[in-house]
């Protein structure tokens, strides 16, 4: 018998230490961290003073700000101009205009630093759009039941309701955007 053949059974037959037994028991007895089904993933970002969220699958890329070239045609209220993102000329829109944030929060940007400002590039049904945001937090998962309805003042408004509901996140309230309607209106607004 070689040394290995002798030592292997010895290793397997050895007495299990008290400590290791305790550790294994605790591990097996611990309450399982069950991942809840049906949760949704969103990207949380900020425009001026408002925290907003869009489904992760429509957000294609978050990049640094770049030069946005204005178009000399004033009929496009929501169009800011053209931006070069990885060699593609993308339309850059003003989300704050379509959401009606500009009046509510003009000059109240809580961090005047431009270092955290980003360009969010979204893609829905092959159509891409970019918009500038004041800050991007990152990804967040929530269950639809956590979604509270938007305040009646907004929900009852006749036009421009793009909020599905609101989420409590950290100590803040985040408005979850209706991407379907938002991109429908943005695309219409460009024409």
């Amino acid at each position: 018998m070689t040394e290995n053949q002798i030592s292997a059974p010895r290793l397997l037959d050895r007495e299990v230490s008290e400590e290791s037994l305790r550790e294994s028991t605790a591990h097996v007895a611990a309450k399982k961290n069950i991942v809840e089904l049906g949760t949704k993933s969103v990207v949380i970002f900020r425009i001026a003073t408002e925290w907003l969220a869009l489904p992760t699958d429509v957000v294609q890329e978050i990049s640094d700000l770049c030069t946005v070239r204005k178009l000399p045609d004033h009929r496009h209220g929501i169009l800011k101009g053209l931006a070069n993102v990885r060699g593609d000329l993308l339309l850059c829109v003003a989300l704050e205009v379509i959401l009606g944030l500009e009046k509510a929060a003009s000059g109240q940007d809580i961090s005047p630093s431009t270092a955290v400002r980003r360009l969010m590039i979204c893609r829905r049904r092959n159509a891409r759009l970019a918009f500038e945001v004041s800050e991007v937090h990152g990804l967040h998962r929530y269950h639809p039941r956590e979604l509270r309805s938007a305040p009646a003042t907004l929900a009852k408004a006749a036009e421009g309701v793009y909020t599905l509901g609101v989420l409590a996140w950290k100590d803040k309230i985040v408005g979850c955007l209706d991407d379907e309607l938002l991109f429908y209106s943005l695309n219409k607004g460009l024409a």
Partner: peptide, 16 residues
């Protein structure tokens, strides 16, 4: 230019 814009007045196209 992005076709969603339609004809942009005075502008034919863009470049980098």
């Amino acid at each position: 230019l992005d076709p969603r814009l339609g004809k942009v007045k005075n502008i034919s196209s863009a470049a980098l």
